[in-house]
């Protein structure tokens, strides 16, 4: 990793935000911004009904991207993280005919994704950089192929429809159900956001950054880099499972596409778009991503990829700190 030494001046600034720890002015500012974002999301969902659906998906994907963010802290890019999202989603699809209760399905999906994360994690944390990325990619493609090939169980690329669900024993109407899913996603997003923030501030979280800069030093200090990375990996898988469950419950239809490598690419895309500097980044990124995609698709249905790709290119070239980087840069500028 020769690149880290001469990283642009903007990048360490975000890391510093965290280095200052949960205490201090930044916490208040980040918290205020998070509240503001949540309020804005609720307002938009109320004013434009169909965006409620888009925002629910964005929140769900944001949760999965939080997991990517953890691994990015360690300098590792998982190009196959959609496999955990797909695991969560297919868990819901398979189990929903027997257990309709959302409050049971969600933890179940998280549990299965965590178990898969542990199994895969034990294997992949031995690898770094491209090997880490490519192994994740390969394993996600294995899952994709299985979901596609085992037609008798998964209905192949047609996917499985998720039937009507229960919330705490009740079956609400469509409108209420949409609000419930939105609220659930928002709640989980806030919960996981706080969790990730606390984790990154803890010694375990700080050790992650050590893997990125000088892993050997970490080991000299008697810390097992593999164990540090494994913990982060399993946590990220858990969040991927939660995200997948939310996606399945919201869109009510799951397909193998969820596990395809381009879906994993999207998650990494969102992480960078939002900015890796804050736990708020993934949600800003996910909202930005979904909105660009929806509006690009509405404006030029046949060239939305071109627009999305161009946005990504521009962000990387001109605002490598992502949306969060731009926002926090502006806030800091005002504060000083």
């Amino acid at each position: 990793m020769s690149g880290d030494r001469d990283a642009p001046a903007a990048a360490p600034a975000h890391v510093q935000v965290h280095a200052q720890g949960p205490a201090g002015v930044t916490l208040a500012r980040e918290g205020a911004l998070a509240l503001l974002a949540a309020a804005a999301a609720i307002l938009v969902a109320w004013a434009v009904p169909w965006l409620k659906f888009v925002l629910t998906l964005a929140l769900a994907k944001g949760i999965a991207v939080l997991g990517i963010l953890l691994l990015l802290r360690a300098g590792q890019v998982s190009f196959g993280h959609a496999m955990f999202l797909a695991t969560g989603a297919y868990t819901v699809a398979f189990v929903a005919p027997r257990i309709e209760e959302v409050l049971l399905l969600l933890p179940l999906a998280m549990l299965l994704a965590t178990l898969l994360g542990l199994a895969v994690g034990l294997f992949v944390v031995r690898y770094r950089d491209i090997f880490f990325g490519m192994l994740n990619l390969a394993l996600s493609m294995v899952l994709y192929s299985l979901l596609e090939k085992l037609y008798d169980y998964t209905k192949g690329t047609d996917g499985i429809r998720v039937a009507a669900l229960r919330f705490a024993g009740t079956v609400p109407g469509r409108e209420t159900q949409e609000w419930l899913m939105f609220g659930l996603a928002l709640l989980l997003a806030i919960g996981f956001g706080l969790l990730v923030r606390a984790y990154l501030g803890s010694p375990m979280g700080r050790a992650l950054a050590g893997i990125k800069t000088r892993e050997t030093r970490l080991e000299f200090m008697g810390i097992s880099a593999r164990r540090v990375l494994l913990f982060a990996y399993v946590l990220s898988a858990l969040m991927g499972g939660a995200a997948g469950a939310l996606v399945a419950m919201t869109s009510r239809h799951v397909t193998p596409q969820l596990a395809y490598w381009t879906s994993s690419g999207e998650l990494v895309f969102i992480a960078i778009l939002g900015g890796a500097g804050s736990a708020l980044g993934p949600f800003l990124g996910a909202a930005g991503f979904e909105l660009v995609r929806v509006y690009a698709a509405a404006a030029v249905a046949e060239a939305w990829q071109l627009i999305l790709g161009s946005v990504l290119l521009l962000v990387i070239l001109f605002a490598p700190g992502g949306i969060w980087g731009m926002l926090s840069g502006r806030l800091r500028g005002r504060g000083a």
Binding site: P49, W50, S251, T255, V294, A297, W304
Partner: peptide, 22 residues
Amino acid sequence: YFVDEAPGTDHLVGEYRRLVQN
């Protein structure tokens, strides 16, 4: 109003909602 099916089902059901509600 044309909508692309290729991005996947989760996107499409969102687009269906957009077409109807918006």
